[in-house]
Design a protein around this nucleic acid. Structure first.
Length: 429
DNA sequence: ACTCCACAGGAAAATTGGGGTA
DNA sequence: TACCCCAATTTTCCTGTGGAGT
């Protein structure tokens, strides 16, 4: 018997495609976002009158439907105007330079029928000219969706945005407009005035969903995917409650539901209850950490491993200096040339951004000012995921000895020093 | 009040490596 | 093949900083 058939036969509770619960799926309707969508439509409607609309900025936390709404509205727009309107979606976490964004725009407009330009090698102005050529040829309208716009500003100031705003001015035959999406409401304030004024934006705020709204959303998305009677109402409520706790994050709530259904199918259970939701949550949290760690570049992994090794032996928070030292030793042992101290400092900040580490900056007076780091999750999990790396797997059995930076100081002082660290309260950010 | 530690983090220079061109 | 351009990454250099010691 082919083992794969086990998975087709008993999918008792499933009646449709689970992908519709994924974050990339754009549903027909977005419950509880009617007002926001109407607002967006009203502004983009200028395109129908061959006028340039204001640029739109969508604010809201993750999983509040900003991206879905942008896709939804632009899809409606395309349907209304036909192929003369081009919509380009650009995630600024991936396309984070003027260069890569322009390449993305040009290649999307060209589509499959024309030869794409290479993602590296061409000078910026040549790509820009190419784009201008395309735009004056195509006419119509161009809507550029810039998702995670704040990441773009963070990375290289307003430069990228400036280039894109320039497209708007320079494209005479094509109406060009931007939809910026961000979860950081303050980022606009950090922009240079010349960019801020050119952005002349309308903003749409996406408030977090509450548990009731999340329940509606989940129920709506579940239609046609699973048998209605096989999902207990309390499971949906629980799922919504968890999503509501996570600042009204519909993405997380839907992800949880999807994982829960997968668990139920795999375990051949015929009902979806709270139990599956709880199991899904545990799995979800683990997966996020695992994904974050295993996809890290080698040097970042080494820095993280240095951190957890130090933390294990000192059972407290450890300083940048200690991590640096461990990292260097590790590099020597592996025969890899270490990165500079400055870079490690940045890597530590990155690890913090990923939520793998937390730090507090503390001044110890005579003993300097430094950050104290601590892992966020289970050290054993971190270690397990890190050691999956081929290069780092050689550290499996071996225990690295913490470099005692107190060798030169006497024991009392060292104790006092450690005491300080333990007593220190985490900063409230 | 002043010093000085051990860094943080900004800015600019240097390196790396893909891709085009002669 | 040698060489130029370019963006991205990393290093080098630098100034700034909070608070225990003095």
């Amino acid at each position: 018997m082919n083992p794969f058939f086990n998975f087709t036969e008993n999918s008792g509770i499933i009646t449709g495609n689970l992908d519709t619960l994924g974050s990339s799926f754009v549903p027909e309707k977005l419950p509880h976002r009617e007002k926001e969508i109407e607002h967006m439509v009203r502004i983009l409607a200028s395109i129908m009158r061959k006028q340039r609309p204001s640029n739109l900025i969508l604010y809201g936390k993750t999983g509040t439907g900003k991206t879905s709404a942008a896709h939804h509205v632009t899809k409606l727009l395309s349907e209304a105007t036909g192929p003369s309107t081009k919509v380009i979606y650009c995630n600024c976490q991936i396309y984070d330079s003027p260069y890569s964004i322009l390449v993305n725009i040009v290649n999307t407009i060209k589509g499959d029928t024309e030869e794409q330009i290479p993602s590296l090698g061409w000078p910026l102005d040549r790509i820009y000219l190419e784009l201008m050529g395309l735009l004056s040829r195509e006419g119509g309208a161009l809507v550029i969706i810039l998702d995670e716009l704040d990441k773009l500003i963070l990375k290289n100031g307003g430069d990228s945005l400036y280039v894109i705003l320039k497209i708007i001015d320079d494209s005479v035959r094509t109406i060009t407009s931007i939809i910026g999406i961000t979860n950081d409401a303050h980022f606009i304030e950090t922009l240079e005035p010349r960019i801020k004024s050119r952005l002349n934006q309308e903003s749409v705020v996406f408030a977090p969903y509450n548990a009731d709204q999340l329940r509606d959303i989940i129920s709506y998305r579940l239609k046609g995917v699973v048998k209605e009677e096989s999902v207990e109402p309390s499971a949906i409520s629980l799922c919504s409650a968890i999503g509501a706790q996570e600042h009204g994050d519909a993405r997380k709530a839907l992800d949880l539901m999807r994982i829960a259904i997968e668990i139920a199918v795999r375990e051949k259970r015929d009902k979806l209850t709270d139990r599956e939701i709880y199991e899904a949550r545990d799995k979800f949290d683990m997966n996020v950490v695992r994904e974050a760690i295993t996809t890290l570049p080698l040097h970042s992994k080494m820095v993280l491993l240095s951190t957890i090794i130090s933390q294990e032996t000192s059972n407290g928070q450890i300083t940048t200096g200690e991590i640096q030292e461990n990292y260097r030793n590790m590099a020597v042992e592996l025969g890899i040339s270490p990165l500079s101290i400055r870079r490690i400092s940045d890597i530590l900040s990155e690890l913090q951004d990923y939520g793998l580490l937390t730090s507090i900056t503390k001044s110890l007076g005579r003993y300097g000012r430094t950050r104290f780091f601590r892992t966020n999750g289970e050290i054993s999990h971190y270690r397990k995921y890190l050691l999956e790396d081929e290069v780092l797997s050689s550290f499996k059995g071996s225990r690295m000895v913490r470099q005692a930076r107190f060798d030169s100081i006497d024991q009392d002082e060292a104790e006092k020093f450690l005491g300080n660290i333990r007593d220190s309260k985490p900063a409230d950010d």
